[in-house]
Write a protein that binds this DNA or RNA. Structure first.
Lengths: 107, 107
DNA sequence: TTCACCTGTCAGAGTTTTCTTACACCTCAA
DNA sequence: TTGAGGTGTAAGAAAACTCTGACAGGTGAA
């Protein structure tokens, strides 16, 4: 059970963020423990700019959390870790979320 | 708990299918009971071809099930209903799914 | 100074999604 | 025969997403 169920819009965002193999891999990798961008890019085997983009997307919807720290040797390291989320997807669950949907009215 | 947890690929497909406001609305609507395409299009307020595309997408990943029937007055009616799914999304859950990921090796 | 790390961003190409419009087919009833 | 109501599909535009490559800035150590 999610502490506080996400709104329809939030849910759509989270699902969109998770509906990509690479991003799913990122979350899975971070589930083993926090890591910083460059290393994560090496581990997963992706270019750093690409990883950067996906991390932003995941963070934007609150699935992961980033933290810029300074290592002992003075380098800026951005560490990411998974937020603890727990989503339950059921026809009923989704119907409740849809009730709070704002998206889709074309601007 | 999902009866049998979907593979990574299946999960990605389902999440992609659910990460769209309109498709989420379709599932929510079908949660109230089965309905046929043309009527569903009217209820939701979308063109029939568009709805048709989204229904296909949802059915392709097994979230809904379609059934072509003949009404008493001889018309072919395609009824859709929600499949009963129950997905749990957690960092751990996702990590397990990722272990079975096939996608992403570019053809 | 140069090298090896770390961070970030931007421009552009290529692909996929989304949506509209138009078409084709079927049956029954007027 | 025409109209209403059901089915499906194809073509093309518009928008979003994915990814590469190049660039800029920071620190510490050789």
């Amino acid at each position: 059970m999610t502490a506080t169920p996400p709104t329809g819009d939030q849910l759509v965002g989270m699902l969109a963020a998770l509906s990509n193999p690479l991003r799913l891999r990122i979350v899975a990798e971070l589930a083993n423990g926090r890591d910083y961008v460059s290393n994560l890019a090496r581990v997963i085997g992706v270019s750093r700019p690409l990883l950067h983009m996906h991390l932003q997307r995941l963070e934007a919807v609150g699935l992961i959390v980033g933290n810029l720290e300074l290592s002992e040797d003075g380098k800026a390291m951005k560490y990411y870790e998974v937020a603890d989320f727990d989503l339950r997807l059921t026809a009923t669950t989704l119907a409740e979320a849809v009730a709070t949907l704002t998206l889709k009215e074309k601007s």
